[in-house]
Design a protein around this nucleic acid. Sequence first.
DNA 1: AGCATATTTGAACAAGTTGACAAGAACTTT
DNA 2: AAAGTTCTTGTCAACTTGTTCAAATATGCT
Lengths: 235, 235
Amino acid sequence: MTKMARSEKSEPDHKVGVADAPHRSAAATRARILESAEAEFADHGFDGVSVRQIALRAEVPVALINYHYGSKEGLYRAIFEMRAPMIVDQRLAGLRLAEMEPDQERKVEMIVKAVLVPNLHMRSAEKNSSYARILAREVSDPKSHDRKVIQEFFDPIAYKVTEALQKAMPDRTIEEIHWGYQAMLGVMVYTMADTGRISRLSGGRCDPEEEMATSTHLVALMKAALLYGRVPKKE
Amino acid sequence: MTKMARSEKSEPDHKVGVADAPHRSAAATRARILESAEAEFADHGFDGVSVRQIALRAEVPVALINYHYGSKEGLYRAIFEMRAPMIVDQRLAGLRLAEMEPDQERKVEMIVKAVLVPNLHMRSAEKNSSYARILAREVSDPKSHDRKVIQEFFDPIAYKVTEALQKAMPDRTIEEIHWGYQAMLGVMVYTMADTGRISRLSGGRCDPEEEMATSTHLVALMKAALLYGRVPKKE
DNA sequence: AGCATATTTGAACAAGTTGACAAGAACTTT
DNA sequence: AAAGTTCTTGTCAACTTGTTCAAATATGCT
């Protein structure tokens, strides 16, 4: 029987008076590893990074990361377990607000915002920008299918969004609703994953780092797409 | 000095009468390697695949692929050198058609189609579906930045598209044009990269494999986004 | 203090990686 | 038919990969 990783931590709220002692607390080390992993995975992808690179960046011996997270994939998943709830909660909050809005046009706009804004914000919040890139990469990686991480963490909220859209625009077909949602996700992910191409092509006029401008434009586009983008009825 | 790869082939149009001879022609072998590489890269990404896996699938010894393509990256680039012109040409043709259209609304729709349809078609054409997934992956991979493959092959056509959009909708700001274009690319790439999530979320109602339905919906959405998605003017 | 548990460490492991080489087979041209 | 390319092949060395081990150190509790 192999030694199991310490997945669950007691996380004792010990006094941090001895902060600069030889060993920072275990929790701090775990956090540092997670941080490094996030950055490295964002830059090079799951397969593009070796556990050693992560360990090097975190300034810990390689073995430690296996001790704390069990495996490379365990470490990877830990990133999502930490970050996913943040944006899921924000989306839920946005959806609740949209629900109360009587005006249809505004309601759709609020739903769009509920989906896009949390992620776009995270993208520009320096600290989390790497997670945004990991997320973007994960959705376009067939291997993620095996990891099931998107499905596990984000499918539930996806259902909530499509439901909300359906309620806001009852005259739409289910297909229209879903393709509309996919379109939203697409532009969001593409923008989050941006590696400088948008800025390059636009001569610097468009920059995903500028959260306000980006959100404004994308929300306007997707709102219009959802409200006015009807497919000509068959036959 | 290392032995250089045979990047350029004389590609002699020799008689293929002896097709089933012990050695298939060199060109055929090259092609077979390229095919296998395409499939493997699509499934696992550049870093997720070893040259051995590709060689195994193509049923050739490992060394042969280094002989023909010099290196793993050389092989990767060869895929784009083969496929990119196909879709670039189709887009250009679409743009030329759009140019003659007098009606603005139709014109924009034609530009959208010129961008989306070639890729979506390739996605569903069984043979090339793997290339579509490679492409999708490449745009969300910062490492591609180093490889410069997107920039090299697709930036030129991107400029042509934004120009066309500008001419079709002269009242738009440059930012609106570019964000509109990025949105188009986003939904396209996301759809091309799909790993089954779209179908799963929609209970099987939406499937990127169904080219007609997919194109119809996405074109309708993006046309509306571009035509009616104006950002409220500042101040 | 002293004992048990949690954490950290460097070294080692087996498996798999890439790119290279020299030798051989096949096809072209002379 | 001989010579010269072009193409194919098995094997190799040097190196990474993720993971594990046993020993060392730190920490928390009574």
